[in-house]
Simulated scan of single mutants.
Amino acid sequence: MSLKRTPLFPMHQKYGGKLIDFGGWELSVQFAGIIKEHHMVRTKAGLFDVSHMGEIEVTGERAQDFVQYLVTNDAKKLNNYQVMYSLMCYEDGGIVDDLLVYKYDPTHFFLVVNAANVEKDFAWIKEHAFAGVEVKNVSDDYAQLALQGPKAQEILQKLTDTDLETIEFFWFNPDVKIAGVSCIVSRTGYTGEDGFEIYIKPEHAVHVWEEILKAGGEDVAPIGLGARDTLRFEAKLPLYGQEIDKDITPLEAGLGYFVKLKSEDDFIGKSALLKQKEEGLKRILVEFEMIGKGIPRHGYPVYKEGEEIGWVTSGAHSPTFDKSIGLALIKKEYSAEGMEIDIMIRNKPVKARVMKNSFYQKRTRNKK
């Protein structure tokens, strides 16, 4: 089967991207090198091709009621042109996907979902849609670029007359001209840094990409999937298939903040999540750092005194902290800060310590 390519594929070739199969897409894992790209985003700015992400439009008189039922977070609290992080759950509380919800107005929502889940998510949303609500998969209508890092605003401002200061964290402007091209621009991010997402017609993607690199000069560089993962991981941002999936609930993943359990409104999975909260969590996601030598990886078993108590969801040698850290889903009774646990690395137990608030402190803009 041939791999899918984004409208920016020529840029991956031009800038020397090392191409891999990423969920059926041919994308760059790195350009100049993962560590170098990681530090570039933390100190200056990085440009990402995220055109493989999915976009689903929900419109109609009852669009807001439907989105409120579909997702765990509170869509009714959104102002027009505000963005919200949320999850979609199955009836049993397991996670269909995590997503961004963009609200134009109560009759028009724009959902941004994970690339690997587009077809599954679209089918799920259509299956549960209310009468009079129209659901469209518009993924092919958009290319998406992300510009992330402390210099992102300064660079992008050179290409637009719109004052980017007016776009607050988790808000969007539906009509910004970037390098002469009409774009949707939001300010969310998946790196722990400030930055923007640019949604654009596919035919204009290469032009805007090149103009951003030109405007940024030495302060910006193309960034591949490798650094995208280390950046999101350091900022403790979840990845579908690792921290969250159909067998993990938002409460277990530490994402209860995004679940409207106190709302009077029903949503898919609410009763299961209420029950889980009332009964108490049996397992939770914890941060840890390695004491012994070794790099923890996704799927490695976690032990305590010879008993298997969970597994690593994500782990890496952190470029920012220069030490090996990880996230693990483990039995709650072993989750106290300072608790020593064993990570099985190549079938040998290696000591690690449970930590709290030890990951990268996000440098995103304050909300309104």
Rank of each mutant, 00 (worst) to 15 (best):
K332A: 14
L285T: 04
Q68T: 12
E340F: 13
T191M: 06
I212A: 08
L329S: 03
R62Q: 13
F22V: 14
K260A: 04
D98M: 04
V135N: 06
F267L: 06
L156S: 05
L274R: 03
T320W: 15
N114Y: 02
Y240G: 09
S335G: 06
K214Q: 11
K282I: 13
Q82K: 04
L99S: 02
K236R: 11
E127Y: 14
K304G: 08
S2G: 12
Q30F: 15
M1W: 03
P150N: 08
I341D: 09
H317A: 13
Q276T: 15
K351V: 05
A328P: 05
K18Y: 12
G54Y: 01
A336E: 15
K356F: 10
K277C: 06
E127I: 12
K77E: 14
S139M: 08
N357L: 13
V113Q: 03
I198Y: 10
G226T: 08
Y102M: 10
K214I: 00
Y90T: 05
V118C: 04
P150K: 04
T313E: 04
S186P: 03
G93Y: 01
K36E: 15
L251I: 05
E234R: 06
G192R: 00
A328I: 03
K356I: 15
E243D: 15
K4D: 04
A129H: 09
T72Q: 08
R5L: 09
R363F: 04
L159C: 07
I35W: 11
Y257A: 11
I291Y: 09
S2T: 15
T160E: 07
A336N: 12
Y104W: 10
L47G: 06
L87Q: 07
G93Q: 04
I223N: 01
Q64K: 04
G294F: 10
A143Y: 01
I248K: 00
I284C: 12
E165T: 12
G299F: 08
L100S: 05
T249Q: 01
I223K: 00
F22S: 11
F258I: 05
W209C: 10
E193D: 10
M53Q: 04
K177G: 02
A32N: 13
F31W: 06
G149K: 04
L274V: 01
E61Y: 12
R62T: 15
K120F: 13
K260H: 01
K277Q: 15
G94M: 05
F9H: 13
E197I: 06
R297P: 00
E337H: 11
A205G: 07
I330S: 08
A235F: 06
K246P: 07
E57S: 14
S335E: 02
I95W: 01
S314G: 10
I284M: 08
W171L: 11
K151D: 12
Q64S: 12
H38D: 14
K151V: 10
G60V: 12
K275N: 13
K277N: 14
P10W: 04
F31E: 06
L225S: 06
G310A: 04
D121C: 12
I95M: 07
A123M: 07
L27E: 03
F267R: 00
P250K: 00
Y102E: 07
R62Y: 09
W311P: 00
A123K: 15
D163F: 08
N79M: 14
